[in-house]
Computed example of a mutant assay.
Amino acid sequence: MINWHSPTLEAAEGTALVKLVHVLAGLYIWEFILYLDYEYSIIRGTRKFTWTSLFYVGCRWCTLAAVIIQLVGFDITDGINCQVLVIMTFLFAYLSFLFASSLVILRIHVLWEHNRAVVALTAAILLINTASFLYNAAISRGRWAGNICQINHLVDTKASILSEFSADLVLLVLKLVGILRWKEARQKFGTWRLLYSEGLTWVVVFTLASVPPVVFIILNLNDPMNRMFIVPGMIVMSIGAVRMHRGLADRAALGPQAGAVDAKERFIQTTIHTTGSLPPRYSERGTHVAGDKVSQLA
């Protein structure tokens, strides 16, 4: 039987954790640099700025900050306060989660036509997760274990991790149901095909980002294993959220260059890109009503 609390095994797992985070940090930094032109196009004014762009930029930069802080906790030991690193890690990881969730929630609000019950539910989810973050930041204690800044008894944050998992699950269900309740999504053409694909993609993102951390925190094998998939989960969720945002924004920006797109499809793209709600259910009435609602998605 494996003794998961063996010092030798924990040291080996700690080394594996460091290597995993370094590899994923390199991949994320490559991804970050690869799409810097998106932010640059907003600064230059060649891409329309919308307030949702703040969520996009916040998600990318806060994830980058969390990744860099993790690397500092693994690679630099002299003169560094481990407790400060732990608090900063929680802070930027939470902000990354908040901005990524907000990008998803905006789509949910639009797909549900700003239904008050749905808006209240998503607001409650954000408040609960904010409370969990404050609790984790208050109880977490860092210590140097060799050359690694470890979080003592990460299992004490199990309630928070389960809370975030439940929140992600609720958002996933709301997004999928919100898409499928529209006839156009079931027909899967044009922008609706993109939104439908996003819903399926988010199932994969959710599974990769949220399930492994929950499984290992429940198993509670040891501190390195409890921590093993938290950073990967944050990175996967961040990349998934910002890529979906870029996908819709880039499609809307194509305009007339999008190819053979009929007037109805052009109206959908323009409305979603401009400020944030889906067009009224013109397909059910047989008429187009431009300008009644504006979009907040891209």
Rank of each mutant, 00 (worst) to 15 (best):
L172T: 02
L172Q: 08
L172S: 01
V173S: 11
L176Y: 06
G178L: 11
G178A: 09
I179T: 10
L180G: 12
R181G: 02
W182E: 04
E184Q: 09
A185K: 08
A185D: 02
K188M: 14
K188S: 15
K188C: 14
G190N: 01
G190T: 03
T191K: 03
W192D: 15
W192R: 01
L195E: 05
L195Q: 05
Y196P: 02
S197T: 11
E198L: 05
G199V: 01
L200W: 13
W202T: 09
V204P: 01
V204G: 04
V205N: 05
F206V: 08
F206E: 10
F206C: 05
A209Q: 02
A209I: 10
S210M: 15
S210H: 13
V211K: 14
P212S: 06
P212N: 15
V215G: 00
F216N: 09
I217S: 11
I217P: 08
I218Q: 15
N220C: 05
N220K: 08
L221R: 15
D223F: 00
D223M: 06
M225A: 09
M225N: 09
M225R: 13
N226E: 10
N226F: 03
R227V: 00
R227L: 14
M228G: 03
V231H: 01
V231L: 11
V231E: 05
V231K: 03
V231P: 02
G233V: 05
M234Q: 09
V236R: 12
M237L: 12
A241D: 06
V242D: 08
V242Y: 12
R243D: 08
H245G: 00
R246V: 06
A249F: 04
D250A: 14
A252R: 03
